[in-house]
């Protein structure tokens, strides 16, 4: 009953071009049937994500650990609420990040859980920068 060969093959890595995403905007791409948010963060958002004391977070993680060094403005997270799997809405909620409409979980501009029933931060999918304006997810 585990995923069959075609499903696994369809889950191969994908490349995404980042040039059309302006600062302060985001796109949602699907990989393995999961929505992936790619957000071009503003200075303010990065600032907010880095100024919060890590120890005070429900799932402590630094912003640096969630983005690739040298590409600090790019946040790439799986847009699936870690509570019960709904899709959070970007640029909503009190933390300049994501808000889940199902049970009210709020994530900050680093995709970290700040408020609500979700136990964990939004997952960061495996990805790397193939060039400055292109990433490979998977």
């Amino acid at each position: 009953m585990n995923p069959d060969a075609s499903t696994i093959a369809a889950g191969a890595p994908i490349e995404v071009d980042l040039t059309p995403i302006a600062e302060g905007q985001d796109i949602k791409v699907f990989w393995r049937g999961k929505p992936i948010y790619i957000m071009n963060r503003t200075k303010k958002q990065i600032e907010e994500a880095r100024s919060v004391p890590v120890a005070s977070l429900p799932d402590p993680q630094t912003d640096q650990a969630r983005v690739k060094a040298g590409h600090d403005q790019w946040l790439v997270v799986i847009g699936i609420c870690t509570h019960l799997g709904c899709i959070p809405i970007a640029h909503e909620g009190n933390y300049d990040g994501f808000f889940c409409p199902c049970h009210g979980s709020q994530y900050d501009s680093s995709g970290r859980i700040r408020q609500g029933p979700a136990p964990l931060n939004l997952a960061v999918p495996p990805y790397q920068f193939v060039s400055d304006s292109k990433i490979q997810i998977g």
Binding site: M1, N2, P3, D4, T7, G11, R32, G33, K34
Partner: peptide, 17 residues
Amino acid sequence: VTLLWGGYSVGNPTLNR
């Protein structure tokens, strides 16, 4: 959960099972 879905998310294999 993956076993229930038969994929990486709820999808066609889930509906079939």
